[in-house]
Structures are given as structure tokens and as C-alpha cells.
Design a protein around this nucleic acid. Structure first.
Length: 479
RNA sequence: GGGAGUGUAGCUCAGUUGGCAGAGCAACGGCCUUUUAAGCCGUAGGUCCUGGGUUCGAGUCCCAGCACUCUCACCA
């Protein structure tokens, strides 16, 4: 036990001797700190208030103690005096930074104008036994911030603020979709075939069934089964898991919104996406121009819609049909193009030349069909699929298409996909093909990466700042 | 996995050319009834990430390892 902890244990023992119960029970009748300040009336000397929270700052000036109490809403000052507290004064002198207390009493301004609860009753609700972070700089060590998010959240108020916004954004999304008659559902996260995306899955094992299972990389194929079943408008907001490297934009588990609308197509989903994200910007951001790192992103509608092939020409300088030119460009970019399929080379060049230029919200539309095994080809130009991705600040924020509902074509696409697979992690999802044979209504489908959306809307440049407990290596064994 | 950077008191950070280990905050003791990162006086607090090496002498230089950050790769 550290010296610091010992000192606080001793204080706790002294408080117990004074009859203080250091770990309190239910504490009722409180109001959020900011609401108390909001309802304060200047000319009413009879006001009372009761607030619970953590001691963020403490100024002991002898026979008076001023405390900055922090709760979920913000802060309020609590004033302690020997005169008002009486018998409790002695135990009040034992309070430390970080303790959780409840304080009630008259509400009044101090000489310097701070609205203050002058406590005539004080309750210790939980003793803080470990040293709190530095009160001005907060907790800065990045590793410790993520490992001990419970400290980060109260030591750095803007962290709590950001996660409150994340929660509010998700509520906005739910309300928006429910208002449009979409039904929220939950589909399996443990799957026998990890389909719906091109990514390596995590493998786990079911003991009594004696079989391996995959954590899902996407809910897509299950949600579309629901379209077959007659759930014409569904959505799911939940975790996907992909076994890949970590980066500023990638956490192995991440939250995805997927939406399916029967009788729609990708144009419908494009409008839906623009409407939904704009609503989030309007409700949760200061304006339509947001700062994100070095970029200022303008969300003013309508957003740019540009064809994949046109962007390739604009930024990559080559014609999508001129494969020689594309491969030449690939070599210029130091891409190892010799072993790649045509479609893959095209996409590598696209990623290397185009994506860094997509700062303002941009719908990239009509992807090469070979890259889209679950999307419907365009009738007038079958080399391309009715698919779009939304890019903001160089990040892929959304992915959507007109769903392929032809079982024969879907079966062919699955076969082609399997052909390229060396690791046989992906299997033919023949049940999904069976489902399509029963008939799936034509539909538009959409996926939005919630973490990335929250990043953009709250100005967080790393996904770890919008995930409460991002994946880390386990800490070394230690208290 | 490759490259670059960081690691010093509970926290935030200095530390010169290789020459006694430092500050602010927090803590402990004292003074203070209107403070706002309260103030003033005093005290205590260190495996300088770990292990080797060079040197009379290493927080500082060299080698190896560990952790974290950034970046590239894997990955839509």
C-alpha cells in the first residue's frame, strides 16, 4: 500500500471514530449542480439546496472550507463553516480531494458572487483512498487515461462531455429511424459463418456444441434475412468485430448502424444518410462547419456526389477502363500490382490517390461491381454496382447499396469470393442463398460507423477518444 | 511486424558538456471566517522503465529488453 493510501486510511479511521459512516447508502433529494445554479434567485434568502458529487477542488482557509463539487451536470460550490456544521465540523476537516459527499443547506452567493450551498448537513458517501490526478492538468498520460477511464472521466470534464454527446447522438439516430417506421432488432454476434464483409474474424469456441464460432464482422446477411421474413424496415446498432490492426480509425470492436429499407435503393439510402447525419450535426454541433484536426468540414447540404470513375480520373489521372494506364499509375505509387486482380489494382489506385482529397462530405457512387459481391449491378452499366460510400475528413463514414436479391447471381458472387480465399475462414452461406430463393424484396441497405461519426461530430481525432474502454494490451500485474 | 519518438516524486514536467536528484500541484505540520488552480511558513517524498556495458564517476553515452505514442503494413 502506498504511503498516500495509508494516510487516507488513517483519516478514514479517524472519521469512523467520530461516528462517520465512510461508505454511505442511498442519498436522496439531490438536484444536479447546474440546475441548482440555474434556479437560483437573487432576492430570496430562504433558498435551500442539496447536491451530491465528487470533491474536485478544496480550499481550506481555516474555519471555512470551500469545495468545488462535481456531478454529472457540472460543478457547484459548497461552503463549510464551523458555525453551520456544528458537531460535523471536525469530520469535515478530514475531507480530501476525490471524496464523494452529499451536502445540503441554504443557498446563497458569497462575497465574490459564487452561488454556494452553505452546508448545514454533510454526508460522506464514499472515501477516495487513492491519489487523484493533478487538479489543473488532469490526467494526461494517455495509456493511463484509457486503462483507468473511471479516473479520466472525472478528472477531465471534457471527456465526460464527449461521451454524453455520443449517447445523445445515438438517441437521435434511434428516434429518427423509429419516426420513419424502422424496427430495431438484434441479430447474432456469434455466427457459424462470418459474412457480410471482407475482414478476418475473431474465432471463439462453443464447448457443449463442440464447435468454433466467429464473432460477427457484419450483421448484414441476418438483417436481409429479416427482409425476406417481412420486416420491411429494420435497423441494428451494435458491435462488429474485426481481427485487424489498430489505428486512429480502427478499434477491433466497433459500433455499426445498419439500416435496410424494402422497396428502396441506394438513392433512397443516400438521401436518408444525408438527412440523418445533418440532423445529428444540427442537434449536437455548434454549426454546420466543424473543426476536425487541421480540417474545417462544411456540412451544408447538399453534399457532393461524385462517380467513382470520375474521381479516379480527377485525382488519379487515369481512365478506369484503361487498365494499362491504371497499372502504370499503380507502379508509380509503388504498389505491387503484378499479383493483383484488375479490380483490386483499380481500387488500390483509388485509395492511394482519391481518398486523401475527400474532406468535405462526399458521396462516392457507383463502385466497380467486382468489389461489391452483395450489391446489385447497374442495369445500364453492369460493370458497376449501385453502391456508395460517404467520406468525411478522409474517413469512410458510411457504405450503402441497392441490395442484390437475385439468388443465382448471389451464389455466383459467393463462389468467386471463395475462390480468392486462401484461409478457408469464409464458407459458402448457402442458407442465405436459400433465403433469397424465397424472395427478398428489392431494398436499399446502409451501414454507418457510429464511432467515426461521433469522432467527426465531436472533433475527436482518434477512435479511442469515443470508445469508453478501447482495446489495450493488458496492464502489467500490479495494483 | 518495420520506422521514429517518449519513459525522472502520487500527478504535470525541468534536468546544461558525464560531476551531490529538481520545480509546481497533491500529501503531512502550522497560521488564516468569503476562497475560486486560495495564500503564507515549514516537513517529508525517488528502483531516474528493466538488465547489461563504457567510465574514477551514468538520469545523461552504448547494447538488449519492456511499455506507451505517432507512422507504415495487415484491414473497407
Amino acid at each position: 500500500m502506498s504511503k498516500f493510501e495509508q494516510q487516507r486510511q488513517e483519516k478514514l479511521a479517524r472519521a469512523k471514530e467520530l461516528g462517520v459512516e465512510p461508505y454511505g447508502n442511498r442519498y436522496e433529494g439531490t438536484e444536479p449542480a447546474e440546475e441548482i445554479k440555474g434556479r437560483f434567485k437573487e432576492d430570496d434568502p430562504t433558498q435551500q439546496a442539496n447536491c451530491a458529487g465528487r470533491i474536485a477542488l478544496l480550499r481550506d482557509i481555516g474555519k471555512l472550507i470551500f469545495i468545488t463539487l462535481r456531478d454529472r451536470s457540472g460543478t457547484i460550490q459548497v461552503g463549510l463553516s464551523k458555525k453551520l456544521l456544528g458537531e460535523q465540523w471536525e469530520s469535515a476537516k478530514l475531507l480530501d480531494l476525490g471524496d464523494i459527499i452529499g451536502a445540503s443547506g441554504p443557498l446563497a452567493r458569497t462575497k465574490t458572487g459564487e452561488i454556494t450551498i452553505w452546508a448545514d448537513h454533510l454526508t460522506l458517501l464514499s472515501k477516495c483512498l487513492l491519489p487523484p490526478p493533478e487538479k489543473f492538468h488532469g490526467l494526461a498520460d494517455i495509456d493511463q487515461r484509457y486503462r483507468q477511464r473511471y479516473v479520466d472521466l472525472w478528472a477531465n470534464p471534457q471527456v465526460l462531455e464527449r461521451f454524453k454527446t455520443r449517447s445523445a447522438i445515438i438517441t437521435t439516430i434511434r428516434n429518427f429511424l423509429e419516426s420513419k417506421d424502422f424496427l430495431e432488432v438484434e441479430t447474432p454476434m456469434m455466427q457459424t459463418i462470418a459474412g457480410g464483409a471482407a475482414a478476418r474474424p475473431f474465432v471463439t469456441h462453443h464447448n457443449s456444441l463442440g464447435m468454433d464460432l466467429f464473432l460477427r464482422i457484419s450483421p448484414e446477411l441476418f438483417l436481409k434475412r429479416l427482409l425476406v421474413g417481412g420486416m420491411e424496415r429494420v435497423f441494428e446498432i451494435n458491435r462488429n468485430f474485426r481481427n485487424e490492426g489498430l489505428s486512429r480509425q480502427h478499434n477491433p470492436e466497433f459500433t455499426m448502424l445498419e439500416v435496410y429499407q424494402a422497396y428502396g435503393d441506394y438513392d433512397v439510402m443516400m438521401d436518408l444518410t444525408e438527412e440523418l447525419v445533418s440532423l445529428c450535426v444540427q442537434k449536437h454541433c455548434a454549426g454546420t462547419r466543424l473543426q476536425f484536426g487541421e480540417f474545417t468540414i462544411d456540412f451544408t447540404r447538399p453534399w457532393r456526389r461524385a462517380r467513382y470513375a470520375d474521381l479516379l480520373k480527377e485525382y488519379g489521372g487515369c481512365d478506369i477502363d484503361d487498365l494499362k494506364a491504371v497499372r502504370t499509375k499503380a507502379r508509380q505509387l509503388n504498389l505491387d500490382e503484378a499479383e493483383m486482380d484488375d479490380a483490386v489494382v483499380v481500387n488500390e489506385v483509388f485509395e492511394a490517390t482519391v481518398e486523401d482529397n475527400l474532406i468535405a462530405p462526399t458521396f462516392v457512387i457507383d463502385y466497380p461491381a467486382a468489389l461489391c459481391p452483395l450489391a446489385r449491378r447497374k442495369k445500364d452499366d453492369p460493370k458497376f454496382a449501385s453502391r456508395f460510400e460517404l467520406f468525411v475528413a478522409r474517413m469512410e463514414l458510411a457504405n450503402a447499396y441497392t441490395e442484390l436479391n437475385d439468388p443465382a447471381e448471389q451464389y455466383e458472387n459467393f463462389l468467386n469470393q471463395l475462390r480468392g480465399q486462401e484461409e478457408s475462414l469464409t464458407k459458402m452461406d448457402s442458407d442465405y442463398v436459400t433465403a433469397l430463393k424465397y424472395g427478398m424484396p428489392p431494398a436499399g441497405g446502409l451501414g454507418i460507423g457510429i464511432d467515426r461519426l461521433v469522432m467527426v461530430l465531436t472533433g475527436a481525432e482518434t477512435i479511442r477518444d469515443v470508445v469508453l474502454f478501447p482495446l489495450l494490451r493488458p496492464a502489467k500485474a500490479q495494483g
